[in-house]
Design a protein around this nucleic acid. Structure first.
Lengths: 205, 205
DNA sequence: CAAGAGTGAATGAACATTCATTCACCTGTC
DNA sequence: GACAGGTGAATGAATGTTCATTCACTCTTG
């Protein structure tokens, strides 16, 4: 019962996601229903309108992003390691599923969803990012810039780099992954030269 | 005669740009025509279809971007200065006109314009970026990464940072501008340590 | 210079199509 | 048989595109 309800809702959102990636928001409700294997009218049982269904698609997306980025850190994990972990997870997340990345980029720039609403739906992720960056900054690990600015810079850089890279068709090598992470870290790392920590992996020439 | 023709085409593209920013690609041809002060049928004199008109809008955009970023450098301008100038121009360009930035971001992610076509239309700008970065890298000023990767990273970082920043409503201070430029430079600057400048404030934890 | 003929950009009402939304009717379950 | 979830054809509004018509302007001719 409840499982079926959720299953249908999930299938509708998955179908809508696919078609939005392919054709944008002009994809028809009939096509979405057909892809999901339900009748047109069923869409309106789960969502009051197309616009609200799109909101559901975006929300589903933020949930997955949050699941990939938000992690609990034990007290033994250094701030630098937390930030580096965040960067790695972000790169992995964006590269792992091209369709998801395209959908995210598209919906984030569509006039239908105003910026204020996007920020509200995305709050769990941005809050986590702000927390990690703020604490790292307080520990002197990051620059003395606004943590939100640093978060936005790193995220935008990663997404745009991988978007360009995706067009190439070839897989992302481990070396490239490391290069991008290095750019991210250099952009926001604090000026305090404590990188000469004993035991911590140091950057090769 | 010719001036009038260009004037009308220009007015149509300007109207379309405005309405796309406001309502996305669903804006109607009738509305665009009305905003431009012409009849509906006139649109089809200058463009064979709505899709081609959108292409025209994007092309008009790339022309403006190119005009802001592409500069001739004399032989006395150092490679570092060229890259820093590029970063500054990019920040200025994106911040100067919010509507233009939104339009650019939206059209760059719309399924109607496939990535291959976007790259083709944007080639003059990316070619210039690649040239500046490639030469700077050859001079040892930049990291030994793919110049296109570095260009994409910096551009994406700037655009996303300013997009987030724009939502705040407050103007961009000179200090913020410098901070963003610093993140860009640090991300791509070569490892050759000529930045060990004396007098730089460093805070030790 | 005057007048007639020609040109093609501009127009906007009409057309065909597409599409979000609705609702009368199923179908399985208790 | 009552009820809830599900269905898909019907509907009416919206929209991209067309095209017969207008008209300001230019060219030709007497």
């Amino acid at each position: 019962m409840d499982a079926i309800v959720n299953d249908k809702r999930e299938r509708i959102l998955a179908a809508a996601s696919d078609l939005i990636v392919k054709n944008g928001l002009q994809c028809s409700m009939a096509e979405i229903a057909q892809t999901a294997g339900v009748a047109t009218g069923t869409l309106y049982i789960y969502f009051s309108s197309k616009e609200e269904m799109v909101r559901g698609v975006y929300q589903r997306l933020t949930a997955k992003v949050g699941a990939s980025l938000i992690v609990e850190h034990g007290p033994d994990v250094s701030h630098e390691a937390r930030v580096r972990r965040y960067i790695d997870d972000y790169i992995g997340l964006i590269w792992a599923d091209p369709a998801r990345a395209i959908l995210f980029e598209y919906l984030s720039n569509v006039p239908l969803l105003p910026p204020g609403e996007l920020r509200r739906l995305f709050a769990p992720v941005t809050d986590f990012t702000a927390k990690v960056f703020t604490e790292a900054r307080a520990a002197g690990v990051l620059r003395d810039f606004d943590p939100n600015v640093m978060g936005a810079y790193v995220g935008g850089g990663i997404r745009n780099t991988l978007k360009w890279r995706r067009a190439n068709g070839s897989p992302l090598t481990e070396a490239e992954h490391r290069q991008i992470a290095e750019m991210c870290w250099s952009a926001i790392a604090g000026n305090t030269q404590e990188q000469a920590l004993p035991g911590v992996a140091d950057r090769q020439s």
